[in-house]
Design a binder for these strands. Structure first.
Lengths: 209, 209
DNA sequence: CAAAATATGGAGGTCATCTCCACTTGTCAA
DNA sequence: TTGACAAGTGGAGATGACCTCCATATTTTG
């Protein structure tokens, strides 16, 4: 499952070198300030080789992203197995912030790619999303979390956290978002009948009058 | 204040044409699929003229963004003047989603710019942020909203909504985020002593083991 | 109206991206 | 081991987007 095509020993080595260098450059946050050709040199391979292994910047990013996501998913599963659902969710989300904080360069890179990319790294994201969905679902099942808000909303909030890395006091605000989300997720505040987000059309909405 | 430099009649006209076309292209979402040179043609001016008025894509985007933001800020002030604080905040946030929904192309464009840009449109964003901050502050003052979470967190969540425009059921999830944020903002759920986001160090955090 | 100031536009320089193919390296059967 | 075929390599150069520059055109002013 890890290797879907039998690569030649040679090719395998180059691919590895590329990925290793990519991780390095990602973490430094220099990914977009670097000519793609130069990146090949940096990794010690020719331009052609780089392009054969990873046809685009995005393809390379996705490959790196994959491992990153795998780590996070493992953590999610581990937490889910050892803590009460609500706590597992909370811990995971808090940990997520730590993680993004620790790998700012990577977060920046990914945010950029997600925003501009046309649905790239969809697969990698899907895995992470599944993990979050599972955590939320478990918490819903044991009654500590409301069931009328999709887990996707949580993903969206996380997305915002990752994308806004450059705000002056990112850390405090990121923690704030998590706090809001977690408290917002708690089961019904005013008794029981929590009305859906009905949205009564507000005022005039058209941008230009 | 609107015109800080006396432009020649001629120049003024071209600037206008550029902006008009820009708004159009933005809303269509084609902004990044278009050669910048071609955009000049499209607006009926020469390349040089385009570059003189807007040295970069970002500069052009910011100009468009400005008007957009002004509209939203007006709405915020208007709501704040006519509704109770909590309701004004809620209505504004819900309206924000409608607005982004209605101008998806623009939202997409802006998200891209915010993510990749190096702090561009900081000024435009600041105005919007101020509006949100004011709305939150008012609600805090009248006791309907907690005071231990920065308004910046709300901005961050909004950012996430704008940046994730391409998710399959964006609308439902966006509404979900707003719901979570609003409920999360309600003053203390469990009595009074709402503990700060303390963050007890979770598990192993280093990306690579 | 003439001259000075201001603005125009597009031809062409510069530079990152990506393709292509003559050559090297690895693999496998005899 | 060896030969021969497949798989992979790398970098020269085509491509095309971005931006600059300046001879020309348009406004404004005295």
């Amino acid at each position: 499952m890890t290797t879907h095509k039998p690569l030649r020993a040679d090719a395998q080595r180059n691919r590895e070198a590329l990925l290793a260098k990519a991780r390095e450059v990602f973490d430094a946050g220099d990914f977009f300030d670097l000519r793609f050709d130069d990146f090949a040199r940096l990794a010690g391979v020719g331009t052609g080789t780089l392009y054969r292994h990873f046809p685009t910047r995005e393809a390379l990013a996705e490959a790196v992203y994959h491992e990153e996501v795998a780590t996070l998913c493992d953590r999610a599963r581990q937490l889910q197995a050892t803590l009460p659902a609500a706590e597992a969710l909370a811990t995971f989300l808090r940990g997520m912030v730590d993680h993004i904080d620790a790998h700012e360069g990577l977060a920046r890179t990914l945010a950029t790619l997600m925003a501009s990319g046309s649905g790239t790294m969809a697969e990698g994201s899907r895995a992470l999303e599944q993990a979050v969905t599972d955590l939320v679902a478990a918490a819903v099942r044991d009654g500590t979390v409301r069931d009328d808000v999709d887990a996707g909303a949580v993903m969206m909030a996380l997305h915002g956290i990752g994308a806004a890395h450059d705000r002056p006091d990112w850390r405090a605000e990121a923690d704030g978002v998590i706090t809001l989300v977690l408290d917002g997720l708690r089961r019904s505040h005013s008794g029981d009948g929590q009305r859906e987000h009905e949205q009564e059309s507000v005022v005039d909405q058209s941008g230009v009058p």
